[in-house]
Structure formats: C-alpha cells, structure tokens
C-alpha cells in the first residue's frame, strides 16, 4: 500500500468506529478546527457529560468542580503552535491549559494532542504518553482532537513493532486509541462515551494533498 492508500484505509476504518476524520493542510488549520469544535460544543448541553442527570451528592459535587467556561487542554504542542492556539482561544472565550490536567477531572471540553503514528488496518492512533498530562488529555476530555501526519500512517501493527519496542525500552505508557470510548455492557446496546472521550476527531496533515 502506498501513502494515499494507507490514508484512505485509515480514514475509512476510523470512521467505521464513529471517529470524525478530516484532512487539513497545515497545523494552523488543525488548531482552528479544534477551537471550532470547542466553540460549537456550546450548542449541545453535554458539558461534563452526565452532570445533567440526577446524581449522588459526591458525584454532583465533582460536577461543581468543572469550570463552566469552555476549556481546551493541549499538553504536547510545540511552543509556536501553543501560542497560535492561545491567540485563537482568547477571542472565543475559551480557556487553554497545558499542565496540571488532573485538577480538571470533572471534564475538559477538548483535548488537543499530537499522535505519533497510526495503523491503517484498524484505524488506530498510537500515542506515546508517559507524560501524565498528555495521557489525561486523551482520557478526561469530552472531545479528543488528535493531529496526525499522513506520513506516520503504517499499514499494519507489525510495521511498528520495532518502534513500540523502542518506546518500551524505558518506563513508558503508550496508548492505542481507536474511536471513542464505548460500551455494550447493558443489553449489548452500543453506547459511546463511558469513561473516556465521547467523540474522537482525527485531523490528518497531508502535505501532498495540496499538490
């Protein structure tokens, strides 16, 4: 498979598990998309998903912890991109954090992260995240937006075995992420968004696509 076939297969497989996949030309476009997703989220009332339901008192309290302004967490952006993102967030009234995510367990609206690799066979993102903030951004955010370079898409998990082994050569936490968090534990009915993100967006930066 060549690069565009891998990109096409990744897109198809990720969409099959309800991920939103978009091709973007540049990182700036990706940042703008993340802010857009966050801004549009206002329309739906699922902030800190679950808080609208009747809950026990301790769980209700945690909902109170959520700052009701909208929040983007972006722990592993390059300095330049983080600054661009901040300048997009400010006028939209969106808060931006890069560290200390554990204090926001009540819910972060959008977690924006970079992905290291992807596996097209299954539509899977590979994110090397020993950094705890990066890990949390992919876990406690309600929408996870991941940015992926088309050149980092591999056909098969076997193709990245060496790269994984290199990650694992020291203390490490690596995540394979395929679609949003899901369960079918009640009557086998598929439901998205149990303990992790309710929604996954993958933005593929494909330098070749603009040619």
């Amino acid at each position: 498979m060549n690069r565009s076939e891998r990109t096409a297969q990744f897109t198809q497989k990720a969409r099959a598990v309800s991920a939103t996949v978009k091709t973007v030309a540049t990182m700036d476009e990706a940042l703008a998309h993340a802010v857009d997703v966050c801004a549009q989220k206002q329309a739906c009332a699922i902030l800190a998903s679950g808080c609208e339901h009747a809950l026990s008192d301790p769980a209700e309290e945690l909902c109170g912890l959520k700052q009701w302004e909208k929040l983007i967490a972006a722990p592993n952006l390059k300095e330049r991109d983080a600054q661009s993102l901040a300048s997009l967030c400010r006028p939209a009234g969106i808060g931006l954090i890069q560290r200390g995510l554990a204090a926001y367990a009540g819910g972060i609206d959008v977690g924006l992260t970079l992905a290291d690799f992807a596996i097209s066979e299954t539509g899977t993102l590979v994110i090397n995240c020993p950094d705890e903030d990066l890990r949390l951004a992919t876990m406690i955010s309600e929408v996870h937006v991941a940015v992926l370079n088309a050149g980092d898409i591999y056909a098969d998990s076997y193709d990245i075995a060496d790269k994984l082994a290199a990650f694992f050569a020291k203390s490490d936490y690596t995540a394979f992420i395929t679609g949003a968090s899901r369960t079918a534990d009640i009557e086998r009915v598929l439901t998205l968004g149990v303990h992790g993100p309710l929604d996954l967006h993958v933005l593929i930066i494909d330098g070749q696509s603009s040619l």
């Binding site: 679950g50 339901h53 009747a54």
Partner: peptide, 27 residues
C-alpha cells in the same frame, strides 16, 4: 438505589450516570 435518585431505564442515560458516579471514584 445507588444514587438515591430515580433513574430512567434509558441505556444512554444510565451509561452517563455511571460515567459521572465513577469519575468521582477515580479522583
């Protein structure tokens, strides 16, 4: 019983209740 509040037999809602109840346990 667990929440002390009436819960609908709606699977989507029940999953969200579990999400919220258990998030506090993780914290």
């Amino acid at each position: 019983e667990v929440t002390g509040k009436q819960q609908d037999p709606d699977i989507e809602k029940l999953v969200k209740v579990a999400r919220r109840e258990l998030r506090q346990r993780f914290v």
